[in-house]
Design a protein around this nucleic acid. Structure first.
Length: 423
DNA sequence: TCTGGGGTCCTAGGACCC
DNA sequence: TCTGGGGTCCTAGGACCC
């Protein structure tokens, strides 16, 4: 079996450079919501030693010195480019798992003339059609394909496509021996530390560990990882659309909030967004969680964190969901803290065609609710998000996040569309 | 002094991913 | 001053049952 992992290089940064070629060749970073952390870096920014997820405010001096360009994230643009990439990739194999916004697995078993040749063609095609660079890792399991992709990116000799099956066992083990254990998919900083102190510092050392022993000393997930490193498939491809288990909407504020009224506006707005996502996925929720927290980095200030959940008869009505979320907020709000973040989680989701008749609810009400929600969604889709909204969201959201340097939504807003110009 | 054993379900929290 | 958002899975521990 040949599983391929296709991953776009520096995806967000590459998207920005695609629509604004003047950005090419400069160190470029894309920032998270609220312009908080670095979430993508161009090759030049990586060379400066800028780490993934580094807080932007700690990099200001370095950035000024090296003229680093920082853009706010533009998810409308990245989401649209992602769809195009996935559509092109789907033509190379009937078996595709879209794993994240910038990567997918393809089953290239039996590809002619070889899986690696197919990988090279994929790379060439995506660049020709969409202008985005991708790398391809190929192996017999997902965990190994992820590693192969890492080698395809890091080692020039592979020319962007690495099929571990084309290497000898000795060559593979030499590569694994040179790779820190933290590079493995599923091994984060905590596990890497624990593995290191148990004498497993590189991938080869973990590969040679006894799976059952790993299970007792660590956990079942790491046992699967060890088996996958040895070519035993434990993680299946998720080719069909899997139903979400929860929908979350939360944001940090641009300043600490001390009183409840702006929190209420924010929670009403998050509940509204979450309900929109719920309807878009044709789901109903039966449990609404509201949470708030202070800024954990401000050790000089008193800390508070609390969540609460409310059960509902299955619904997708923004009004009911917002009402439940706001009631939750009033239950957990405490005076005397500076709140930095709030959020709404919808869980215990069910499909909207298995709505259970509520004895106390007249079906008429459900129909009217459905019609109202559909009308709101239509208006907001055609005339812009927030055209129709709950009064509870407020009209002047001073708590809204920063996004000071977002590029135009070149591909999804007519008034911001990219136009090719001569010269 | 010695206080069953085996099972299920739920929740909170941790760790990880991109 | 400024430290993301949206997910998943696993585990431990408590409550409860017979």
């Amino acid at each position: 079996m040949s599983l391929a992992l296709i991953d776009c290089n520096n995806f967000y940064a590459s998207c920005e450079q695609l629509f604004n070629p003047a950005l090419r060749g400069s160190p470029l970073v894309v920032l998270s919501n609220n312009d908080g952390c670095v979430v993508a870096r161009s090759a030049e920014a990586k060379q400066l030693g800028i780490a993934m997820a580094a807080p932007w405010h700690t990099l200001k001096e370095l950035a000024t010195r090296h003229k680093v360009i920082a853009l706010s994230s533009n998810y409308a643009l990245y989401g649209d480019m992602s769809e195009r990439v996935m559509r092109v990739l789907s033509t190379f194999s009937p078996v595709q798992e879209v794993y994240s916004i910038d990567e997918c697995f393809l089953d290239l078993t039996g590809a002619k003339p070889s899986p690696r040749a197919c990988g090279l063609k994929i790379r060439h095609t995506i660049y020709r059609l969409l202008g985005l660079p991708v790398c391809v890792g190929i192996a017999s399991t997902k965990t190994l394909a992820k590693l192969a992709n890492h080698y395809a990116k890091k080692r020039e000799a592979f020319q962007g496509v690495c099929d571990l099956a084309e290497l000898s066992l000795g060559e593979v083990d030499r590569l694994l021996g040179e790779t820190p254990v933290g590079e493995i998919w599923g091994v984060g900083t905590r596990l890497a530390e624990r593995l290191s102190s148990s004498g497993m510092r590189n991938v080869l050392e973990l590969k040679r560990a006894a799976p059952t022993r790993i299970r007792t000393r660590f956990n079942v997930s790491l046992e699967r990882t060890v088996r996958e490193l040895n070519g035993e498939r434990c993680l299946a491809l998720q080719t069909s659309h899997v139903q979400r288990k929860q929908i979350l909407c939360s944001r940090s504020f641009n300043q600490l909030i001390k009183v409840i009224s702006p929190l209420e506006e924010a929670v009403a707005a998050y509940a509204t967004r979450a309900a929109e996502k719920l309807r878009a996925q044709r789901l109903l929720t039966t449990c609404v969680v509201t949470f708030v927290r202070t800024n954990p980095f401000r050790t000089d200030l008193p800390q508070y964190e609390k969540s609460t959940s409310t059960c509902l008869a299955a619904t997708n009505d923004t009004r009911l969901i917002a009402q439940a979320a706001l009631q939750g907020l009033r239950d957990i709000f405490r005076e005397g803290f500076g709140y930095q973040k709030a959020g709404v989680i919808l869980s215990h989701l069910v499909s909207d065609h298995q709505r259970q008749a509520d004895l106390f609810e007249q079906s008429q009400n459900v129909e009217r609710s459905d019609a109202l929600m559909a009308a709101m969604d239509r208006i907001n889709q055609s005339m812009g998000s927030g055209t129709v909204k709950l009064l509870a969201e407020g009209c002047d959201p001073r708590w809204a996040m920063r996004s000071q340097n977002r590029s135009p939504r070149y591909t999804t807003r007519l008034e911001e569309v990219a136009v090719a110009t001569a010269g």
